[in-house]
C-alpha cells in the first residue's frame, strides 16, 4: 500500500484579532511518507509554524478557524474528537519547539517530565520501569551522568541539553511522525550541529518521519529530502531538496537563495536581496502574494495582481507562478 503517512489537503487557518482577520495559512496541501524528512521553509509570517500547530491541533483560542483536512493514517485529525486527538499527541505524532529554555516545566525534575511523557500513554507502568525508561531515554540523547541528571530541574541544563531532553521526551513513545518547529533556531551553530545529528540518528533508529519547520536554508539542505516553500500563507514551491537548490523555479525561492550568504561565496560579492517587505496578513494583496516584490510581475500585464496562481508542475518540481513553464524551469543564471 502506498498511502502517505500524513496527507494535508487545502488547509486554511484564520485568526481573528482586534485589527482584523489574520489569514495565516491559505490552502496548503502536501503529503509525507513513513520515515521521510520534509522541510517547510519560509520567513516569519509565512504560516509555516501555524501549519505545524494545525496538524497537532495546537492552535486554539476564541477566534481561530481551521478548515481543510489532515489525514493521518487515513483518519482526519482536524475532525477527530478531543480525546482521540489527545491520545494521538505525543504517541503517534510528537512535537519539538523552538525555544528549549521555555519548553520544559520549570517546577518538575527532568526525570519526572520524561517519564510523564511515557506514562500518559502507558498508564499503570511501574515506578521502577519508568525510571529505567527515563534513564535510557536520557542516555540515548547523549546526556552524561543520567542517574544524577534525571533528578535535576530544567534550569540546571544548558539550552542544547534542554533540547536533547525535549527530544528524548518526544521520542520515548516511538512516534510515527515528529514535527520539529525551528528546533535549532535558538541554539548556537555547534550545538545546532549536535542536535541535527541527534534527530537524524533517532529518526533512523525509530523509522520516524520528520517535518522540519525552519527558516534556515542551510539546515534544509543538510538534513531533508523534500522541501515546501511558503510565502504569506501559501505554498509557492514544492520540490526535492536537490531540485529546489539547484534549479529553484518560483521567483521567491530564487530570491531567497540569492539572499542567503553562502560560506562558499566570494567576499564582498554583492548580495541580491528581495526588494520590499512581506505583505501584511491582515490586508493581503489580491492575486499572487509575492507580486509586489517580484521582478517578473510587470511582464505579465497585471495577471499577477488579479489571479491567484495555482501550483503547477515544472520539471520535477511544483511551482505557484503565472510565468510560463519554460521560463520557470530555466537555469537561474539565464533568467535573472
Amino acid at each position: 500500500m502506498n498511502t502517505p503517512l500524513l496527507s494535508v489537503r487545502d488547509l486554511h487557518v484564520n485568526f481573528g484579532t482586534s485589527e482584523g482577520d489574520v489569514q495565516a495559512v491559505r490552502g496548503v496541501s502536501f503529503d509525507i511518507d513513513r520515515g521521510e524528512t520534509l522541510a517547510i521553509v519560509g520567513e516569519s509570517g509565512s504560516g509555516k509554524s501555524v501549519t505545524a500547530s494545525a496538524i497537532m491541533r495546537l492552535n486554539f483560542g476564541a477566534d481561530i478557524r481551521v478548515s481543510g483536512s489532515a489525514l493521518f493514517e487515513g483518519k482526519d485529525i482536524l475532525s477527530m474528537g478531543e480525546e482521540e486527538v489527545r491520545k494521538m499527541r505525543g504517541s503517534d505524532v510528537a512535537m519539538i519547539f523552538q525555544d528549549p529554555l521555555t519548553a520544559l516545566n520549570p517546577f518538575y525534575t527532568v526525570g519526572n517530565q520524561i517519564s510523564e511523557a511515557y506514562t500518559i500513554h502507558h498508564p499503570g507502568t511501574s515506578k521502577k520501569e519508568l525510571r529505567a525508561l527515563a534513564l535510557d531515554a536520557i542516555e540515548k540523547v547523549g546526556i552524561p551522568e543520567p542517574v544524577k541528571r534525571i533528578k535535576q530541574y530544567p534550569h540546571e541544563f544548558s539550552g542544547g541539553m534542554r533540547q536533547r531532553i525535549v527530544i528524548a521526551m518526544a521520542l520515548i513513545n516511538q512516534p510515527k511522525l515528529l514535527i520539529a518547529d525551528e528546533p535549532t533556531t535558538a541554539l548556537d551553530v555547534t550545538v545546532q550541529a549536535q542536535i541535527l545529528e541527534l534527530i537524524g540518528v533517532m529518526q533512523e533508529e525509530n523509522g520516524t518521519a520528520v517535518i522540519l519547520i525552519t527558516h534556515d536554508l542551510g539546515v534544509v539542505a543538510e538534513v531533508t529530502e523534500r522541501v515546501l516553500v511558503m510565502y504569506a500563507g501559501r505554498l509557492v514551491e514544492k520540490a526535492s531538496v536537490i531540485d529546489a537548490f539547484a534549479s529553484p523555479t518560483h521567483p521567491y525561492t530564487r530570491g531567497l537563495l540569492n539572499s542567503v550568504k553562502s560560506l562558499d561565496s566570494d567576499r564582498h560579492s554583492r548580495l541580491e536581496p528581495i526588494p520590499g517587505i512581506p505583505p501584511s496578513l491582515i490586508d493581503l494583496p489580491t492575486g499572487c502574494p509575492f507580486h509586489s516584490r517580484c521582478r517578473y510581475a510587470a511582464s505579465l500585464n497585471g495577471r499577477c495582481s488579479t489571479e491567484v496562481p495555482e501550483l503547477k508542475a515544472v520539471g520535477n518540481s511544483w511551482s505557484a507562478c503565472h510565468l510560463p513553464v519554460d521560463l520557470l524551469a530555466a537555469p537561474i543564471k539565464e533568467s535573472l
Binding site: 545546532q192 550541529a193 545529528e197 542551510g218 539542505a221 553562502s262 562558499d264
Partner: peptide
Amino acid sequence: MSAVPVPNPQAGAKRKRIIL
C-alpha cells in the same frame, strides 16, 4: 566552520562535519 549548514545539498553530503 564545519557546523555551519551549507545551503547546497550536494556539497553538504560530502563535507565532513566536526561535532563538538
